[in-house]
Design a protein around this nucleic acid. Structure first.
Length: 206
DNA sequence: CGTACGATCTGCT
DNA sequence: GCAGATCGTACGA
């Protein structure tokens, strides 16, 4: 089990990183409460040339400014006034690439995560969808800009590797405004059946 | 300053 | 399958 260091996030191919992040473990420490999930779904947002990105055409605002920082920090923003969506900034300083985390498989602290989600049934559905995944991990917009090499949010490799046949990719969701870029196959996810297997194994390790 | 709308989720039908 | 929730952000006046 090794913590991913910032160099991992400096690579230039955000789509490649998106795919590679599938199966990594995302940890948060919120007020001393540690929870974690296996990343099961991601989307790449390729910065200035990507109409779906908040940083399209190098648009800079106080919200998007953190995306222009060095890879390996969190970009968290509010969507529809309700959902705190968690992204990982990639590439070198000045290039605003990011990966949206869209789903997790509970790995550590599922009781806490269920409380945050106001759910009782330990179902996988409650942790898929970008708003749900971030909420389960206690992520808030106030954490935007947090370094992933600190002790508040970080990533680790897992021994169990997700095989390629269990991963597929397709077009991103909810970005109809992005024209042709809406068709780009920048979304990666673990097939549902495979996610369920991992989830069950996690809950009953025998 | 005012307005339009979004990288969504939920519950009800 | 669809509408409603709900509010910060962006942008134009």
């Amino acid at each position: 089990m090794s913590k991913l260091n910032f160099e991992y996030f400096l690579k230039s191919d955000v789509v490649e990183i998106s795919k590679n992040l599938i199966g990594k473990i995302l940890y948060t420490n919120v007020d001393g409460e540690i929870t974690a999930g296996i990343i099961s779904e991601t989307e790449a947002y390729a910065g200035p040339g990507d109409k779906a990105s908040h940083a399209y055409n190098n648009r800079r605002t106080s919200r998007t400014e953190v995306m222009y920082g060095r890879g390996g920090i969190a970009y968290v923003y509010l969507c529809y006034g309700i959902h705190h969506l968690f992204n990982i900034v990639t590439n070198v300083e000045g290039i605003p690439h990011a990966v949206l985390i869209r789903g997790i498989i509970p790995y550590l602290g599922i009781e806490t995560m269920l409380l945050r989600r106001k759910k009782t049934e330990p179902k996988l559905d409650h942790f898929s969808g970008p708003g749900s995944a971030a909420s389960a991990l206690g992520i808030h917009t106030s954490m935007s800009g947090t370094s992933l090499s600190g002790n508040r949010i970080w990533l680790e490799d897992i021994k169990l590797k997700i095989p390629d046949y269990a991963i597929y990719n397709c077009a991103r969701i909810g970005i109809d405004y992005a024209g042709d870029d809406a068709k780009l196959p920048y979304r990666f996810l673990i097939k549902h059946e495979h996610s369920k297997k991992i989830f069950e194994k996690m809950r009953d390790p025998r």
